[in-house]
Each structure stands twice: as structure tokens, then as C-alpha cells.
Nucleic acid binder design. Structure first.
Lengths: 336, 336
DNA sequence: ATGAAAGCGCTAACAA
DNA sequence: TTGTTAGCGCTTTCAT
């Protein structure tokens, strides 16, 4: 910024009080005489004075800033979490910065910058276990984890109830008469992929169906991996009438492979995804999916983080959010 | 952050020099004797010392932070610009914060926070003219504008060469034999929508086709608006064999309306979009589109901003980036 | 209720 | 080459 701005002293000079009194009307208005106060307030308005946050941070030893680190910013799920967190942070008077760290190295660097430089009062980490990044979170950093099953009580954690969501999806398919259900998973080292697998298998078993490992194909969340998974399955000749993909992108890729192979969705194969990403209803056919409220997830995480910052003794919450089945046209009753 | 960290003084004490010398080995290593330097460096390593950016900002009167304000974070185009800007900023040693301001009011508030509080050394504003938000950018704030045609030489500006891009798209359609080309635009108060309109019309005229206002329908960038636009067009009975949408989402919506009306893409109607959003190739049919390199756009904007911050007398650049035609299967030669 | 003094951790200017 | 002295603009503590 180019022009230097008025300081506490300028306001003090103009209103004929000490700079400390000015600080008081800003921070503890009730401790100063109404008369002096209004005089100071006038001066503030007149000079268009705004506190210098840097100076305030320095004096208070806090930055009033929250940071959210995610693998990237372009993935809708992440972006939406971030928007939720930002909304909450701003509302509670905190600054908010989002940053992306695609890999461990950049994560490590970023956390170092953030924590060692005392840039933030606390941080939120989205998908802390996609690699070993969680190991680089310093003990002294107030942190909330997002999008992975809690592994330690040291951190507050917010994630989807993946198992329950997967159960609902699987049950939906079974209720429509499907028994041979392909499952395209995310990377199996991610907690959520595993939990969704358990949900799927348990539901199968509860319905008297023995899970068959051949029906499970591991993907990497990309549409291409969903596409390839189905191509692979088709080659093996394994019969199936339904498909559960652990995210919408893979479901989209799968639908394309099915279409190319001449299998109709949902007549020949029912497909259900996860997330309810934008335009999910614009694919052909519109995608049935498990919607997760990522914006809300972000809000909640920010709320927990702020609570922990302001009241460090708060016990760490571990929250599981519910997903909701959104019925569209990619699933149907199994043809006789 | 919970535990207090070592300061310049701690390092100074441990290495037996003054704090200033420590500051020197950090900022101007060449001005201190190799011997003292290594002693200090050892101490730094030993204590795991990291400079307190807040204090440094305070002393220097700068925050070493860049901010990027966009209408939202979830729109892929924006997210991708932000990632590019973030990458560049970080690489040049700046912190980066992204923030979203959906409307004028929140924009105003945010800028106030950012500028008046001296939170940032400069900011980038994406889509400054979607409303009157540009009016709230203070004169003393170093700012780069993104995604809108330059309106003032006061700001460096980076945007797509919308007119040229639109010309390429239109020409592609014309070369495939189309003469009745529907044009679904973004909100016409946005510069880029207007420029794309000019490009479209001029190309038509150059090909000897008289632009017909009835072929132009204004949308709002949403898939739904593209869908409605086509429904409307179909009702009017206006004949057309091609359609140019100013973004992919509207193109997707349009394709759906066409499909529902029994018109095949591309056999009956060729469709071309703008952006090359993720999964553009996964729709049915895969979408031909004008790709814009938004990541690069972000990088460039950040570079310009940093340049302006570090050398305030730099003339403000006004850059136009080229879009690239990505041929897929939604366009074809017009049926006889 | 108000003011004066000290200090947050750093850099800048000047001395030695 | 290194150390000393002053701030940066604010909050905190202690007087008044």
C-alpha cells in the first residue's frame, strides 16, 4: 500500500488525549467517559483511522489469522470446504488464508512458514493422511483435521461418516434388486476409501451377499480411473448390474466406459456416485449420488478451530457428518 | 500457536554476538565475517530459529503478503487462477491469501480490512466489473485486475483475448458450413461477454452473414441458463445448425435441452463452449471448446503485482491472453 | 478515568 | 565488520 495511514497517535493528537485512551475506546469502550469517547470516536471517523493489524498482532502475540491447507484449490470438494471455513472465520473476526500443498514437501514447507513465522493462530488441514504430511504438523500448532477418520485425540477432526454413507448407497442398490455390485474405490490408503469399503461390504453381508474381491477396483478419484476400472471389469467378463463409485468423477468415467461398451445406464447397469458435484445432474443420465455438505464441513471445522484457539482447554471434538442420498436417473430397479 | 519460539536475541545470546549481527547473517550474509556467520548459523540451527514475520512486517512497514479476491472459490476458472497466482507468489517469497466476496458489500468490507489494516502489500481482483466493486478499490492500494478488459490505465490488467477467442470459435463453426449460429452469452454487462459478442458478429460479417439479434440469448453462466436459452430458441422455431456458448456450463445445459428435444449433437446441431472445464471431455458428446489457460493467467497477474510492488514506477501492463481451440466431438460439418 | 512507561521482535541508521 | 540506539504501532502494566 502506498500512502501511510493515520495511527493511534494521530487520533490521540486530534482528540487531545493520550494514545492509550484511543486504544481504550477501541478495545474497552466502557472504561472511558462517554464524553471523551465520543470525542475520540469523532477523530477516528474524521481521519478514517483503522487499526494496523500487524502492530496489533505483534503486541498481542497473535495473528488473528486462520489458514487452511488443502491438496489443491481446484477440486470442488476442497474449494467448497474452504469457502465454508472462510465464511465462518470472517464472521468470527478472523482473517483467513487458503493455501494448497500438492505433496509432502510443499506441505512441510508451508507449515513451516505458517507456524514458525507465526503467520497464523491455527490451521485446518484437509486430507491429512493422503501421504505422510500429518507427520509434519508441529505439536505446538493448533490444528483441526478435515476429511479423514480421526487417528489421534490430539486433533479435533471433522469428516464424513463414510461408512454410513456407503451403507446407504449400497442398500439403495440392493433394494433395487442388485446383487452383483461393482465397487470403484478411491486410493485404498485413504481412510475414507477404506471406510466406504467397510460400509459396502457390511451391507452386502447383512443382505446375505458374500463380498467378492473381484468386484472391487481401486481408482484414484479421477474420471479416467473410473473409465479404466470398468474397461478392466468388462474384460474379465464378470457379470454385474450395478456400480458404486466412491466419487462422482469416477462414476462419470465409469458411465462413459459402459456407454462405449454398449451397456445402458441404468437399464443394464445402475450407477451411483459420491459427492454430488456441480453438473452431476447434467450428465447422461443424471447421476444418482451421495451428497456431502462440504461447505458445512468447512464451517464446522473453522468453528472448532476458533474454539480451540480461544479456549485451549476445550476437548478435541471428533465429528462425523451425514451424507444424503440424491436420487436421479442413473439407478433403477434391476431388469429381470 | 502455543509455545513461544526463540527470537533474534536468543540466537544472539547463544552465539555471543549482538542481535543485529544475527539479523545481518539472515538478511545480508555477505556483510559479516565467515567465521561469525557460521557461528550464528549454528545457533540458528540449534535453536530452530525462524524469523517472526509479524515483527519483520512491522519493522519494514510491509506484510509480504498478496491477496486475491474473487467472486467465489468454487468456480473452477477462479480456483485455477488463484492456484496460478499462489504458485507464483510463493515462489517469489510472498505469502498469499485468497478470499471470496460474492457481492459489492462483502467486497467493500474485505478490501477495507485488507487495505486499511495493512494486511497485504497488494491485491488481485478477479472480475472487477461484475458489479460496482471496482469503485471500492482505494487509490493507495497496489492492485492488478483480472478477467476484464482494461478500463483504466491505473491498473495492470490481465484478461483473455475474448474477442479473438470468439472469432476462432465462430470461424470454426463457419468453416464447418454453419451459417445459422446461436450465441448464448454471459451477462451482457460483463466485458468479456460483450467482447465475445463482437468477435462473433465480426466473424459472421466477414463471412458474409448478417448477424441476427434473435440468435443471441443472454445467460448467466449457469448450465440452467444454457438449458433455458435453447428451450426458448426451440420455441421460437428459429432454424439453427450450430451453437456457440460463452462457457462450458451453458454449453452443457444447451446440449441437454437439445437432447431432450430430439436434436442430436453434433449431427443436427454443433455445439462449442468456452473454458475447457474439467470433465468437458466426459459429457456426451465430448465438448469442443475454447480452452483458456487460467493457471497461467493467475501466474502472470501475480508477477505483475509483485513487479509493481517492488518497482512502483513500473508502467501498468495490460495483457491479453490467447485461447486455444480444443476439438472434440460436439462440432461437425453441417449435414446437407 | 486517564496517562506514562515498557516492550512485542524485528530493521535501519549511525557509531565504533 | 560489528555493536548501539531508535523506532515500527500497538497493548499491557502500573501510576496517578
Amino acid at each position: 500500500m502506498k500512502k501511510s495511514s493515520p495511527t493511534l497517535h494521530d487520533v490521540a493528537a486530534l482528540s487531545g488525549v493520550s494514545h492509550q485512551t484511543v486504544s481504550r475506546v477501541i478495545n474497552n469502550p466502557e472504561t472511558v467517559l462517554p464524553e471523551t469517547r465520543s470525542r475520540v470516536e469523532n477523530a477516528i471517523r474524521q481521519l478514517d483511522y483503522h487499526a494496523n493489524m500487524i502492530a496489533r498482532s505483534m503486541a498481542k502475540g497473535r495473528s488473528f489469522t486462520l489458514a487452511c491447507i488443502s491438496p489443491n484449490l481446484t477440486d470442488y470438494t476442497f474449494a467448497s470446504i474452504i469457502e465454508g471455513a472462510e465464511t465462518e472465520a470472517r464472521q468470527k473476526g478472523y482473517f483467513f488464508m487458503s493455501a494448497s500443498a500438492p505433496d509432502e514437501t510443499s506441505f512441510k514447507l508451508m507449515v513451516k512458514e505458517l507456524v514458525a513465522n507465526r503467520r497464523t493462530d491455527g490451521m485446518m488441514v484437509i486430507n491429512p493422511y493422503i501421504d505422510n504430511r500429518a507427520e509434519f504438523i508441529p505439536q505446538n500448532a493448533t490444528t483441526v483435521l478435515l476429511g479423514a477418520r480421526p487417528r489421534s485425540t490430539a486433533y479435533a477432526t471433522v469428516c464424513l461418516d463414510d461408512k454410513a454413507a456407503s451403507q446407504i448407497a449400497t442398500r439403495h442398490l440392493i433394494e433395487n434388486g442388485h446383487r452383483q455390485i461393482v465397487h470403484i474405490t478411491g486410493p485404498l490408503l485413504e481412510d475414507c476409501s477404506q471406510d466406504r469399503c467397510s460400509g459396502y461390504e457390511e451391507t452386502l453381508i447383512a443382505a446375505g451377499i458374500t463380498p467378492n474381491a473381484a468386484y472391487r477396483v481401486e481408482g484414484d478419484w479421477s474420471a479416467t480411473s473410473g473409465y479404466r476400472a470398468v474397461q478392466h471389469l468388462l474384460q474379465t467378463g464378470l457379470p454385474f448390474s450395478a456400480l458404486l463409485a466412491q466419487n462422482d468423477r469416477m462414476a462419470i468415467g465409469a458411465m462413459r466406459a459402459l456407454r462405449e461398451a454398449g451397456r445402458r445406464v441404468p437399464e443394464d447397469v445402475s450407477v451411483i456416485g459420491f459427492d454430488d458435484m456441480p453438473l452431476a445432474s447434467y450428465f447422461d443420465p443424471p447421476l444418482t449420488t451421495m451428497r456431502q455438505d462440504t461447505f458445512e464441513m468447512g464451517r464446522i471445522a473453522a468453528r472448532l478451530l476458533i474454539e480451540e484457539i480461544e479456549k485451549p482447554e476445550t476437548p478435541r471434538a471428533q465429528l462425523f457428518l451425514a451424507a444424503e442420498l440424491v436420487l436421479r436417473s442413473s439407478t433403477a430397479v434391476r431388469a429381470k
